[in-house]
């Protein structure tokens, strides 16, 4: 299986250039794709441009790039629509999402939702885990993200997510610069200190 089919790369020079400029993408392409357990060949072909950064079957190995594997379908499709419409801003994602049809977005959502989630970061020491759990309970994260923080409907899975990505999102929500459809996370992030954000990112990334 080729990771980025030439047909796709030819279809958009701009997208190709954006990706080519990304050292992250090059690094990801160097890793080899395992045979997929879930999804059709057509889905895998559609997902190839995503996998270049988001990792095999959407399990990211790159610091700032989120894992998509095991995310709720509606979370993936909502974010792709919002990238396409320009509400959520990221130059690479805005460009990649721009030409996608609703059906293609829906198909990508189905594919990544069906993959098994990325393995969690290595378990934390008891005190770090306790601090993280305490914050999660105090902040009521489970109210929306679910008891095991695996997401639901349009709410993302946090368990096992890249810590660097979680940190960037929380800082963005706190600053009011991260797109937020309903204002929930912007409000929730306001009381967080930088230390809290670090504790949360580390704790959540270590959850299975």
């Amino acid at each position: 299986m080729t990771i980025a089919p030439t047909r796709w790369r030819r279809s958009s020079r701009r997208r190709g250039r954006l990706l080519a400029q990304s050292a992250l993408a090059v690094a990801a392409m160097a890793s080899c794709a395992a045979a997929s357990a879930a999804g059709t060949d057509a889905q895998r072909e559609k997902a190839a441009p995503c996998i270049a950064c988001h990792g095999d079957e959407g399990r990211s190995v790159l610091a700032e790039i989120p894992s998509l594997a095991g995310q709720p379908k509606q979370f993936i499709t909502t974010q792709l629509v919002m990238f396409r419409e320009g509400n959520r801003k990221n130059p690479v994602m805005n460009a990649l999402a721009a030409p996608l049809s609703n059906a293609e977005i829906s198909e990508l959502g189905s594919y990544f939702a069906a993959q098994s989630a990325a393995p969690a970061a290595k378990p934390l020491a008891a005190d770090a885990a306790g601090a993280g759990r305490g914050l999660v309970e105090k902040l009521g994260c489970v109210t929306c993200h679910g008891a095991e923080l695996k997401g639901q409907q349009h709410i993302p899975r946090l368990a096992g997510q890249r810590p660097e990505y979680l940190r960037t999102q929380l800082l963005g929500f706190k600053a009011g610069t991260r797109f937020d459809m309903d204002g929930n996370m912007t409000a929730a992030a306001q009381p967080l200190t930088p230390a809290d954000i670090e504790t949360l990112a580390t704790y959540l990334s270590a959850l299975p």
Binding site: I105, D182, N184
Partner: peptide, 24 residues
């Protein structure tokens, strides 16, 4: 967020939430 505004302290752990449409 406005949908939570007016929620009492003992409702703060409620799991009730507005339902988002499937945007595709």
């Amino acid at each position: 967020p406005s949908w939570q505004q007016g929620r009492s302290a003992d409702q703060s752990s409620s799991t009730l939430h507005p339902i988002a449409p499937i945007l595709t």
